[in-house]
Design a protein around this nucleic acid. Structure first.
Length: 545
RNA sequence: UGCCGCAUAGCUCAGUCGGUAGAGCAGCUGACUCUUAAUCAGCGGGUCGUAGGUUCGAGUCCUACUGCGGCAGCCA
């Protein structure tokens, strides 16, 4: 949008009738007529001395919920005819019922709404005319006494009013009765593109989006209470590492340097550990240049923490405590989900974070669910032989599994995990012991060649965290990077790049360290029961239309 | 990226066999001094996503494009 009034002008007599469009094409929904009418109402309000945009401040006695809670204390139930204390409130007009010389309107502060009762005799001539110029969508400040209507609704008997904003557009507010919503804004594209309307009009959407804020706050409080330092590491990097993903590129003009947006927090956080800061965490945005789906967004918020002198079991305990703390602090509990395949006789239940998580071995679970044994998975060849002899059908989706494209045994094992095991992991479960090839930053398991000291946590069939005992042997780490570089040379553009700076830090000495990463967006989805990542992102990236 | 579906008033949706655009809410005018999906009477509102094509005639049929959604792929 450009600047104000010159964008719209009335054509003079003799020209084409009505209004002339004099602005660039825009996708914004706008009705010429409504906008014009409301600007005229605004002008009249100003003539009456009720300029909405001139008011800077409106002190409220309490929130809407607070007024309703403290109704009796604030004199709402005083005897008929007695002088009641004056309360003050402000909110957006979300409904109006006009009856000649009296009216009711609900004012919402976003969370809750309070009804105002407006009567000409009580307001006076000018304020009553001003009230008549208000629309659904305007913000309004009121003062008056609390009382109960004949139907018992706690309301404000308005004595003075002050328009605080004028809505120049029609808000797609639905009507509601008995908690059931009529109409309203339901088109998902409109909701994502014009999120402010979604926040105003859809309580469930508002709840999930604001729950995110409470969850992030609880996560911070948890780690701060445990003595972790929150740090911030670079988003612009020469080589983005710490995960397997394609990158976004950009350019830094001052150094004439191509840089990449980070795909993880891992390597820099471990360099902080190398600096003898034994407990660190970061909550930050990472960027992965990959497809969009109901669980993937190109930018998302990652939590990672690292704790020196802690092993896998310590990290598991932290994950358990963290989820229990966040669930308790926010009051959010994940609803039962149909994303999992319930075992025979097993009911779909809401996960309970107050109990310890199940702990299972990756290979044992694969054997239990698919019959493919650890012996079968001794080598890529034997694994393919074992798979080749049977019909490989995903029990959850009924789809056949493609086998043979995996370049190494680790990739195949993770595929089997994904297909046969994950859908069954309804209750919070740690799956322990991931293949070496797909875990280039995790310590080798000395008792099990080819596997690492790594686990992932699952809830409702979905991965919620990824953790391992961090490699602190620089020689081992270099060999792992070199293996990744060979993968990359073979065409895997997501294989991990060499990072000499990181190796230099490891060579300086890193204590044994446990680390873990959690996708905050998916944690919010889990706790709010949302099935789409866009429902927990305020402004998901949309193609221009 | 592939396949499928959707796109009509500010919002939510109808639109028959291809015959020239409908409803509710919102908006405007009027009535109504305790309503709450307020009620009653009346009124205005549309480049039917975009561009082509077929046809005497296209919201409707065909093609392409754009956006959104679903599935697949991708995503440890």
């Amino acid at each position: 949008m450009g600047s104000g009034s010159c964008l719209w002008k009335r054509s003079s007599a003799g020209e084409s009738p009505g209004w002339t469009r004099d602005r660039p094409e825009s996708s914004l929904p706008m009705s010429d007529d409504v906008r014009t009418l409301r600007l005229e109402k605004l002008a009249r309000l100003r003539e009456l001395g009720f300029d909405p945009y001139a008011v800077e401040r409106w002190e409220r006695t309490d929130s809407a919920a607070g007024l309703l809670d403290r109704f009796e204390e604030l004199g709402g139930d005083a005897d008929e005819g007695t002088e009641r204390p004056t309360v003050s409130f402000a909110g957006r007009i979300v409904s109006m019922r006009l009856m000649g010389k009296a009216a009711f309107a609900h004012l919402s502060d976003g969370d809750e709404k309070v009804q105002g009762y407006f009567k000409k005799d009580d307001l006076g001539e000018e304020a009553w005319e001003a009230f008549g110029l208000l629309d659904i969508g305007d913000h309004l400040g009121v003062t008056g006494g609390l009382f109960r209507t004949k139907t018992g609704e706690k309301s404000i008997h308005v004595r003075t009013l002050a328009p605080l904003s004028k809505s120049l557009q029609v808000l797609p507010l639905g009507k509601e009765k008995d908690g059931h919503q009529w109409y309203g804004l339901t088109d998902v594209e409109e909701r994502y593109r014009h999120r402010h309307l979604d926040l105003v009009c859809n309580p469930e959407a508002r709840h999930a989006l604001l729950a995110r804020s409470r969850i992030v706050s609880a996560v911070r409080r948890y780690f701060e209470s445990k003595g972790f330092f929150e740090v911030e590491t670079p988003m612009l990097q020469l080589e983005a590492g710490g995960a397997a993903a394609r990158t976004f590129g950009t350019h830094f003009n001052a150094y004439d340097l191509d840089v990449k947006l980070r795909i993880s927090l891992e390597l820099y956080l471990k360099r902080v550990i190398c600096g003898d800061v034994p407990k660190v965490f970061e909550l930050g945005r990472v960027f992965r240049n990959e497809g969009v789906s109901n669980r993937h967004n190109p930018e998302f918020t990652l939590l990672e923490w690292y704790e020196a002198y802690a092993n896998l079991e310590d990290v598991m305990a932290t994950v358990e405590e963290l989820f229990a703390f966040v669930a308790r602090e926010t009051g959010l509990t994940p609803p039962p989900s149909d994303t999992t395949v319930a075992d025979a006789g097993e009911e779909r239940v809401a996960p309970d974070f107050s109990k310890p998580w199940h702990r299972v071995q990756l290979l044992e679970e694969i054997e239990r669910r698919s019959g493919i044994t650890a012996a079968d998975l001794a080598s890529l060849d034997s694994a393919k032989r074992a798979l080749g002899e049977r019909e490989i059908v995903n029990p959850a989706t009924g789809k056949r599994i493609q086998v043979g494209e995996e370049a190494h045994l680790g990739g195949l094992i993770e595929k089997l995990l994904e297909v046969f095991v994950e859908p069954h992991l309804q209750e919070p479960t740690f799956v322990v012991g991931y293949p070496l090839e797909t875990s280039p930053l995790a310590k080798k398991d000395p008792s099990r060649p080819g596997f690492t000291r790594r686990f992932e946590g699952y809830v409702l069939g979905r991965e919620v965290c990824n953790a391992f005992s961090e490699i602190n042997d620089p020689t081992d780490q270099r060999e792992r990077f070199e293996a990744q570089v060979r993968e990359r040379a073979r065409g895997d553009d997501e294989a991990h790049p060499m990072d000499e700076e990181f190796l230099y830090a490891l060579e300086g000495g890193m204590p044994p360290t446990g680390g873990c990463g959690i996708g905050i967006d998916r944690m919010v989805m889990l706790l709010t029961g949302m099935e789409h990542i866009r429902e927990v992102l305020l402004f998901p990236l949309m193609r221009p239309r």
